[in-house]
Write a protein that binds this DNA or RNA. Structure first.
Length: 590
RNA sequence: GACACAGUAGCUCAGCUGGAUAGAGCAACGGUCUUCUAAACCGUAGGUCGUGAGUUCGAAUCUCACCUGUGUCACCA
């Protein structure tokens, strides 16, 4: 096993050979090597940048590790690309590659297995979980995420925002940003008028104390049912919300109580998920900042009256108008988000401001950006809506009002229970069963949510969500646990000198090539705010490692033992780090 | 109706800025545990990439039209 303070040990014991080590790292850029060798031949025809853009990674490994298509040269030279490829391959023979071969119109480059493996593995072992990290500081990024509504239980819908936002924060942190996670709680609005009315009519203090959220929800659903028959209830609700806004003592007291009880329950779910926040400033927090916004809009001559309401006209941008103030003078969602955006800029001076909110609100965020732009804030360009797809149940949209919800906490506890049953069956002597069951069950749910493109809609299906086989979180965790198990059994301190890490078989080579890709994977995930890129990568790496594991004996006492163990260790580092970036734990045993 | 997002194997989905034979997982069928955790591995079967044009040496990928699904479209968030 590699000791924890491995990197220090490495440098101390090998300072005499630092140059050699640096040489190993430099040669990590194999693509560059391909570009350079082509460039020396093609100087007058194509520049380096063009060549680099043309280089691709073949789909099949029998076609090499990098390939150069000769089509664009064919145009320049007016010759058949097949012929050009043949000529190029002939010229490129030499020590730099294991093989350079023309196949049809392509020149295929084969990297030497031992060279690539040892370069990648030594780099990973020396950097540990800092592999693919960037230290350059890129500034603050606020992330608006989770944002459940007070007095309503967290549903699968909130899971998406929470888990995607959390993963994005981890990914951005890895590439050098300072994420600030903001839970913009839905703790204000007319629904509190409804809730107060419902509580006063049908509720009891005892009930709320016993099971706050479920009973508050019950009142809320009941209100909507009754209000269909008795519309005057809505007027009553509006009245109570007005009281709340006017700091009426009874209304405020109830509001505070509902909020406090709700937060306690949310916290329980966040603890299960392992998610923390830097701010819980929700809608209510901006209450006293609304007038200033309305004033500012007025001053900048952006407000217009329309049908009794105050709007900002966005016709010139092909957007429907942004509603700032209702005809009764009350402010709206948009107004609060304007206040929040400005407050966040002033408080955090963000480089980017992200909103992890469902796709159905994309229009709203376009409007928000547009209004901020019209207000003269050039940083409105730094505001980004990170949308995600809808979760449905039985093909229907989830609606708190109609009582059609999937309780997040129930899903999580089901998942943990099933994970526990799995452990009892497969590994009954495992120490720490409860802890591992928790990590595996919750990991399955989180991973399931992150493995697909954010924007994909999906219909909820418990069996699907808590599956432990195939393309799942537990599969990745299991792969890592097997790797760890080997390292435990080996009881061997890995020597990370590049010359001690050379492997030549195809299975290990495929693993090493995948490990090499981690850098650009992290980069792409950060650029696209897309955790699924990491999740897919983790599955891919796990698949390749499992093939290696199934086909090559690792714990054999021969001269390559150290190299094989080093590859296992490096794989475990990257699998663990991939899972961490998704917000999933990687138990060492399961 | 307008706008947005989507349509790839029976099901759930990959397929990066266009490139060589369209890939995984589930489900089905068959094989692999005296050897490093079988939550795994190997094999078989399964596809008019919604439809039709266009751009290109080359299109699942880009453009346009159409069809289908979902969402949004002024006092909810």
């Amino acid at each position: 096993m590699v000791p924890r303070d491995f990197s220090r040990l490495f440098h101390d014991s090998r300072c005499g050979r630092v140059f050699l080590f640096i040489g190993g790292i430099k040669s990590m850029n194999f693509k560059e090597r391909v570009v350079k060798s082509l460039q020396t031949i093609l100087q007058d025809k194509l520049d380096g940048q063009t060549i680099e853009k043309l280089i691709e990674r073949p789909k099949y490994s029998h076609l090499g590790d990098y390939a150069f298509p000769a089509f664009s040269l064919a145009k320049i030279e007016k010759r058949a690309p097949q012929q050009i490829a043949l000529d190029l391959a002939k010229e490129l023979q030499g020590d730099d590659f294991a093989k350079v071969e023309a196949v049809g119109p392509y020149v295929n480059f084969f990297i030497k297995h031992d060279e690539l493996t040892s370069a990648v593995v030594s780099t990973i072992l020396s950097k540990g979980n800092q592999y693919a990290s960037q230290s350059e500081s890129k500034g603050n990024v606020t992330i608006d995420m989770s944002s459940p509504n007070i007095a309503k239980p967290m549903s699968m819908g909130h899971l998406r925002s929470t888990v995607i936002g959390n993963s994005i924060s981890l990914i951005l942190d890895k590439v050098g940003f300072d994420p600030i996670k903001i839970n913009h709680l839905g703790d204000w609005g007319t629904q509190f008028g409804k809730l107060i009315v419902a509580y006063k009519k049908w509720g009891s203090e005892d009930e709320v104390r016993q099971d706050p959220i479920n009973n508050l929800l019950k009142y809320y659903v009941e209100f909507h049912e009754e209000a269909e028959k008795h519309p005057e209830l809505d007027d009553e609700a509006r009245l109570w919300f007005k009281k709340l806004e006017d700091n009426d003592e009874e209304a405020l007291k109830l509001w505070r109580w509902f909020r406090e009880e709700s937060l306690k329950e949310f916290q329980r779910v966040y603890d299960i998920l392992g998610v923390t926040f830097d701010s819980y400033n929700g809608e209510a927090f901006y209450n006293d900042k609304m007038d200033a916004i309305v004033e500012e809009l007025k001053e900048k001559d952006l407000l217009k009256e329309s049908q009794g309401a105050q709007i900002v006209d966005l016709d010139d941008l092909d957007l429907s108008p942004a509603l700032i103030q209702k005809s009764d003078g009350a402010t709206l969602y948009m107004t609060r988000d304007l206040a929040a955006a400005i407050y966040r800029k002033n408080t955090y001076n963000f480089a980017e401001s992200l909103y992890v909110v469902g796709n159905e609100q994309s229009e709203h965020f376009k409007q928000l950006k547009a209004v901020l732009g019209k207000m003269g804030y050039d940083w409105s360009d730094d505001i980004r809506h990170i949308p995600f797809g809808l979760i449905t149940s039985g093909g229907k949209k989830l609606s708190t009002r109609k009582g059609n919800i999937i309780l997040l906490e129930e899903v999580l506890s089901d998942a943990v229970r099933l994970a526990k049953a799995q452990i009892d069956e497969k590994n009954p002597n495992l120490p720490n069963k409860e802890q591992v069951a928790h990590e595996v069950g919750v990991g399955a749910v989180i991973f399931h949510d992150l493995r697909n493109d954010r924007l994909d809609n999906f219909d909820f299906n418990l069996e699907e969500v808590v599956r432990f086989e195939g393309d799942t979180g537990p599969y990745v965790q299991y792969t890592n646990a097997r790797a760890q198990s080997i390292l435990r059994k080996a009881n061997h301190t890995v020597d990370a000198t590049p010359s001690q890490l050379e492997l030549t078989d195809d299975y290990s080579f495929e693993v090493a090539k995948e490990l090499l890709k981690f850098n650009e994977i992290v980069q792409r995930a950060a650029e696209k705010y897309e955790p699924s890129i990491i999740a897919k990568y983790a599955i891919n790496l796990a698949q390749l490692f499992n093939k290696y594991y199934a086909n090559q004996r690792i714990l054999d006492e021969d001269k390559h033992l150290n190299a094989r163990l080093a590859l296992v260790e490096a794989t475990s580092v990257v699998l663990t780090e991939s899972l961490r970036l998704l917000g999933v734990n990687a138990p060492k045993e399961m």
